[in-house]
Design a protein around this nucleic acid. Structure first.
Lengths: 358, 358
DNA sequence: ATCGGGCGCTAACCCGATTTAGCAATGGAA
DNA sequence: TTCCATTGCTAAATCGGGTTAGCGCCCGAT
């Protein structure tokens, strides 16, 4: 079919030396092993002319590596969000000459087991365990056979695995400050969660942390939350009903929506009541979902940094891989908890917040 | 670190036979080579007890395969769409015990070259070349070294590569029929492209084919397109301005928007003019973007079957792989054009179309 | 002339599987 | 008893590269 691949043996023959000699030169160890300049040049020329590329499968067999990392997530496809995480991971990996295996578990533990097995069968050098929304996950046991990193997830049980998550608490503070900076001090309502810390959807790390940050920033400014409506699921329809419910009894000046889809519902509810964003009610939200910039007026929101999360996960994974390979020297206690890396969430200031008339 | 993997040698030793014997039994060729029942049982038991799994890297070196296919796209992350294609491909591949390498080119030819190289270095068994929106692409040369399939793309030059694309022409017919079936015969306008076949954005296969289908179905019903507005880019803002422009001079009864984002803009424009969907104006659209079911009223749209496209691409790829392996026998002329597989686009009937009052 | 030693390279083995060729043991026929 | 088939397994080579031990050679010193 294709003209057979050029192998090391071909290069060696073309250069008139033995296979090991060619190998030594090409792996850069020629100098320390005193290969002559002449031979070195011949080998390099031959490799160049033949367009030699080492077969990674073969190298993998010998060295036990594959220059590949596995990206295992619960769901890739459901959201654009995932795509950006993968994209960040992809680029960071590529910069190091690594490829990405993709796998989805759909939350199925058995599938996850099989997937991890399949990846180990292929000798992946490391694993990224990703969740599509920030939450705590049950870390599959046996995962510590290879370096691994949690992405957008925290371990349910204590594990030595490092984790990379968005800095949701700070995001909460930032959302609150957007309103404070615009002069809002009264009539600030929450849509999606709160006002108490226990008024959050189950399992959602984001809800708790955003709420903590919001309350903290408001408290520091001496401002009180005027009220809140929870949503069983953070979808537009619940945002709509929650906001309608609120508008029947209150006159909010500003809403902090717990995500953009809720904000979308809130827009509709406000429209139903003849209220204008941001003239009558300012809105700030979270996620920076694509719709945020399609909504009219464009939604001011605190962005989930998916791309950066993906990149960061790969960075952290590579330091883990390094730790593994140097493991003979410094082997710290395996019971230590994994470090948690928080990636900042930037504010995307758009059109849905206006200065408080007060 | 991890307890060393169980190898074939371990199984053989535990069963008290040689390595090749164990291999023969496990590969199912024991029967034809007359391995005794006793030995067969011993080997199978040993493999079971030791939880033996063959190292795919090693098998790969021997057989030149990797039980892996490469998924190369221009952009994975930009849209949810991509995610579903990948998901479909992922599941279809997994059912056959294959994994997916993911790569993005960002439209950069040099990057694409490197990526394909990296995949070949890893001995992928086949390649899927995907585009995030349906269009014609320049097929990188040298691609024919391995089985390959175009996904959501058609080759610019004639190649023997098969292609998998959505059936946009039929989708156009279906969209038109949705309106016809609801009794609409007058005041049907197009937003996004048309009315002439040359009034389409460059490079967009979807625009042309949807338009062809729409015109065909309407013509068959003896109905004329009342008018059209093109959009330079299929984004909400252009849908908004195009529809506003239309409403200044016309009184449409129905709109066929060329995608959901345009429809989103159209909703806003209609709202600005105090027109109700679907009471005053029915709307049918294309893509079934997530927002289509968030919009109020929910948008009736002809869905891009991304998941099925991904699955289909893998199916087609596997028949290609089979052709390659049997290539000695039947080798058809390499200049034949690749088959084009069209995946049907289903109508998602929702709330944006109502019977014509006429 | 012999020995020691550094230099420059290669023989040989390894990774974990598959595959081909062929060897011992057994049984039956001549 | 000898020869041949068949049965049931294994030795050895192979894939493509990495790694270690050590072989010749030439030089200078004794």
């Amino acid at each position: 079919m294709s003209p057979r691949r050029v192998t090391l043996a071909d290069v060696a023959k073309a250069a008139g030396v033995s296979r090991p000699t060619a190998s030594l030169v090409l792996s850069g160890r020629g100098r320390e092993l005193r290969i002559s300049q002449d031979v070195e040049q011949r080998v390099l020329r031959a490799a160049e002319e033949l367009q030699y590329r080492p077969n990674i499968v073969s190298v993998g067999l010998r060295t036990g590596t594959s220059r590949t990392i596995g990206f295992v997530s619960d769901t890739v496809a459901t959201s654009r969000l995932a795509g950006d995480m993968i994209k960040g991971a992809l680029e960071a990996a590529r910069e190091r000459g690594f490829m990405l295996f993709i796998g989805e578990t759909e939350g199925d533990a058995e599938l996850e087991r099989l997937l991890l097995q399949a990846m180990h069968d292929r000798q992946v050098d490391g694993l990224i365990l990703a969740s599509m929304f920030t939450r705590t996950i049950k870390v599959p046991k046996g995962i510590t056979a290879a370096p691994a990193v949690l992405l957008n997830a925290l371990p349910k049980q204590p594990t030595p695995l490092p984790a990379v998550i968005p800095d949701e608490v700070e995001a909460g503070r930032r959302a609150a400050r957007v309103l404070l900076d615009a002069g809002h001090r009264d009539g600030i309502y929450l849509i999606g969660a709160g006002p108490r810390l226990r008024d959050v959807p189950a399992q959602s790390v984001a809800a708790v942390e955003r709420l903590v940050g919001i309350r903290e920033a408001l408290r520091e400014a001496g401002v009180k939350v005027a009220g809140a409506r929870t949503c069983p699921d953070w979808q537009p329809e619940y945002g709509l009903t929650a906001t309608r419910d609120l508008l029947r009894t209150a006159q909010p000046r500003a809403l902090i929506c717990f995500n953009d889809r809720i904000a979308m519902g809130a827009y509709q509810a406000l429209d139903d009541f003849g209220l204008k964003v941001p003239a009558d009610v300012s809105i700030v939200s979270f996620d920076d979902h694509p719709i945020a910039s399609w909504m009219r007026p464009k939604l001011t929101t605190v962005a989930l940094p998916h791309y950066e999360l993906g990149r960061k996960a790969v960075d952290v994974l590579f330091t883990e891989i390094d730790r593994f390979t140097e493991a003979d020297r410094d082997r710290p206690d395996p019971d230590r908890a994994g470090e948690v890396h928080r990636v900042p969430m930037p504010v995307r200031g758009r059109e849905s917040v206006s200065p408080s008339p007060a």
